Simulated scan of single mutants.
Amino acid sequence: MRQHIAGQHIAGQHIADDAIRFDGVTKIYQAGAPAALADVSLTVAAGEVAAVMGPSGSGKSTLLNLVAGLDKPTSGTVTVAGLRIDTLGETALARFRARHVGIIFQFFNLLDDLTVADNVLLPAQLAGASRRLARARAEGLLEQLGIEEHRDDYPARLSGGQRQRVAIARALVNSPELLLADEPTGALDTATGQEIGRLLRELNAAGQTLVLVTHDPALAQRYAARTLQLVDGCLVPSNAAVPA
């Protein structure tokens, strides 16, 4: 079953290109075991914000890993940012991730022995970007996200919301077409989680494509144009009852 998230108008222009396309994607980790994803076909339009929901073990993390090129399908094709990534080798996949995908994690995944500024700069350095341009981009993001005064601090000195803002800046430093957020508010209190949710919505309003994995129906309803529901590795209609 194919689910499509329609393009939206951004800055007066209709965005129609697919940021993500799955065609008959199945992922089996172990012979004889149930498929983590089973014959999933979907498209997400560029400039769209999509939420992915489902109970534990439903295939959400597998879907995100396939989009990020961290895993490969057993069968089917995965196209992201116009690139067929399921056929790429590891070196090409690493280059693809550095240039096209930013990832935000539930528990931030910041390096404690690096300053805020150096955490944000790290993906740009790994991608071989000009240090001068990368520093300018990082400084701009820290200012945009309201944490520029913490550029020389270490992550342990920051609040959860501040650390998540650093993680968002790090994910955006290479100007990726696609931003993947895995439970981005799961480790935050309600008020801070809403603050991060609003920030993600602002990024999307500026044209950033976003895929949001969450257990929180309110977060999905508030910030996503549409929700993709996964159950036992299969897409189900968004209005279908989903087990907890």
Score class of each variant (00 low, 15 high):
A31K: 12
R95S: 13
A92R: 15
R97V: 06
A225E: 07
R2A: 08
A167Q: 02
E183G: 00
A81K: 03
N239W: 12
M53W: 10
I5W: 02
A241F: 14
E139S: 13
G197K: 00
L110W: 03
L200T: 01
T192I: 09
L158P: 15
L63K: 00
V80G: 00
S61W: 12
T43K: 01
Q13G: 09
H4K: 00
I168Y: 10
Q194M: 02
A19N: 08
L235T: 01
S58A: 14
M1V: 10
G57V: 14
D152E: 13
E177V: 09
A6D: 12
G161L: 08
A33Y: 07
G24Q: 01
G69Q: 09
H150N: 14
H215F: 02
G24W: 00
Q13M: 10
L122I: 05
E195A: 13
Q13T: 15
D216Q: 07
L114C: 07
A38Y: 14
A11G: 02
E139I: 04
N204C: 03
D18N: 11
A31M: 09
R135G: 08
R99N: 10
G82L: 09
I103A: 02
A46Y: 03
I20G: 00
R163H: 06
N174Q: 09
D216Y: 04
I147R: 01
D17F: 04
V173I: 08
L114E: 10
T185C: 04
R157D: 13
A129I: 03
A240H: 14
H100Q: 14
A138K: 12
D216S: 13
P155C: 12
L199N: 05
C234A: 13
R97D: 11
A68R: 09
A205Y: 00
I168K: 10
I104Q: 01
L210A: 06
S61N: 09
V120S: 08
S75Y: 12
A50F: 05
T87S: 14
G207C: 08
F22D: 00
L141E: 05
A124H: 11
L126S: 04
G57A: 11
A51I: 05
I20L: 01
P176C: 07
A220E: 04
D113C: 05
Q106S: 01
R151A: 15
A191E: 01
R132M: 05
D17N: 12
E90I: 10
A244W: 12
G193W: 03
N204K: 04
K27A: 11
R131G: 03
R97W: 03
L122P: 06
Q30H: 12
L219W: 02
T87Y: 14
D182F: 02
T192F: 06
F107K: 11
V52E: 02
F108K: 02
A187E: 11
I85C: 03
Q144K: 15
P73N: 13
A50H: 05
D71Q: 15
E90T: 14
A31Q: 15
E90N: 13
V25D: 00
R2Q: 14
T77W: 01
M1P: 06
L93G: 06
S75P: 10
L188A: 12
D152Q: 14
V116G: 14
D17H: 08
D118R: 12
L122Y: 05
Q221I: 03
V67C: 01
D86C: 10
R99H: 13
A38C: 11
P237W: 06
R201L: 02
H14N: 15
R226C: 10
P73Q: 13
A129G: 09
A31S: 13
I85G: 03
L188S: 12
A92Q: 15
Q3H: 06
D152A: 11
A206E: 08
L88D: 08
